[in-house]
């Protein structure tokens, strides 16, 4: 849950990158860390990875400066994507204000995307939140792999399978090169701050 201090005009909110294992959540955060140096207010922390897999979470604090008279700070987190870390995902999701769901465009990861989205839905329900109400953005990552000859799903197919009912903003991306990462993050922040405005009327 965001911390909003209207007297000091400060907002601190939490965005979580969710998605199946190996979909590129940590890569998104690494790119943001490199590309948004001015906004990064602390070091990126990756807590204990196993090889290059996330076991706990990654954390990156950002400071967006003044928006509508408020000093806006954002905490970015990733969850571990592997199925067996469900409990950790639930813990990292606590207090979430907005979510970026990173889906893998590779055809072989189709089912993993769907299971992970279902897992997100279930975990939010357990916290009394609805996937249809929480600020959510989809990212179709690894679009570049099509050029390398790997079978990928078309955007239309991914939209149909993941976003048919949700109808949330979705972006193509290649987190490794950074393509689409900023757009995804900007849209997620916009939705999150709008949602907080509706709830707390923080903007002047």
């Amino acid at each position: 849950m965001a911390v909003i201090n209207l007297r000091n005009r400060q907002i601190e909110c939490k965005l979580v990158f969710y998605g199946p294992g190996r979909s590129g959540k940590t890569t998104n955060l690494e790119y943001i860390h490199r590309a948004f140096k001015k906004q990064v207010t602390g070091k990126m922390i990756s807590i204990d990875t196993e090889g290059d897999r996330t076991l706990f979470f990654d954390f990156l604090p950002l400071g967006l400066g003044k928006i509508k008279g408020c000093d806006v700070k954002v905490q970015l987190y990733t969850v571990p994507g592997q199925v067996k870390y469900k409990a950790t995902r639930q813990l990292v999701l606590k207090g979430v204000d907005g979510i970026i769901f990173v889906a893998d465009s590779l055809a072989v990861r189709r089912e993993k995307n769907m299971h992970s989205l279902k897992d997100l839905h279930e975990n939010l329900l357990k916290m009394g939140l609805s996937i249809r109400k929480i600020p959510l953005v989809l990212q179709y990552n690894k679009r570049d792999l099509e050029k390398k000859g790997l079978p990928t799903m078309s955007i239309q197919k991914m939209e149909h399978e993941l976003n048919r009912q949700l109808k949330v903003p979705a972006f193509s991306a290649c987190a490794l090169s950074g393509d689409g990462v900023a757009n995804t993050l900007t849209q997620a922040l916009k939705l999150t701050l709008q949602s907080l405005q509706n709830e707390f009327k923080w903007a002047q």
Partner: peptide, 18 residues
Amino acid sequence: KKYFKEAELYRSHGLLVD
């Protein structure tokens, strides 16, 4: 050749089962 290249790419992306 195509399948082998795919397998190698999946492996390099950590998608071991695939």
